[in-house]
Structure formats: structure tokens, C-alpha cells
């Protein structure tokens, strides 16, 4: 897996114009991530509370509609 090093990415961003910034946003910070032992390990918790958040928020909205 090649996650860009901080310096590579910083250099890229320094010189980037608006449309390259949009591209960076999409291809470097989004998309399916299949890497990262530690990220995945923590992501298990991440996903659990995201689901919790989704359920709580949905419940909150249902209440608001009543």
C-alpha cells in the first residue's frame, strides 16, 4: 500500500490549482480503503459508532416529525 508521505502530499498541495485540489480530495481522501492494520483496527470502532450515530440521528428525525 502506498499512502502518500506527508512531504509528498504537502508538496503536491502547495502547487495545486483549484481543479487539482478537487482531484486530490476525491482520490486521496475518499474511495475504498483496503489498507492499514492500525486504521482498520480502529476503523472497527469507527464503524460501530457511525452506525450508532445513524440510528440515533434517524430516531431524532422521526421524533421531530411527530
Amino acid at each position: 500500500m502506498t499512502t502518500p508521505s506527508r512531504t509528498e502530499a504537502a508538496r503536491l498541495l502547495d502547487e495545486a490549482d483549484a481543479s487539482l485540489l478537487d482531484l486530490v480530495d476525491n482520490v486521496l481522501t475518499k474511495g475504498v480503503v483496503i489498507d492499514g492494520e492500525i486504521i482498520l483496527g480502529l476503523a472497527g470502532v469507527d464503524l460501530v459508532y457511525l452506525r450508532l450515530g445513524a440510528i440515533l440521528c434517524a430516531a431524532d428525525r422521526i421524533k421531530a416529525q411527530r
Binding site: 500500500m1 502506498t2 502518500p4 486521496l28 475518499k30 474511495g31 475504498v32 480503503v33
Partner: peptide
Amino acid sequence: VLPLRFGSIV
């Protein structure tokens, strides 16, 4: 099509 993040190498 579900894109993967740039640099996804296995």
C-alpha cells in the same frame, strides 16, 4: 464502479 483510494497496492 466503486473507486479505490489512490495508491491501493496489494
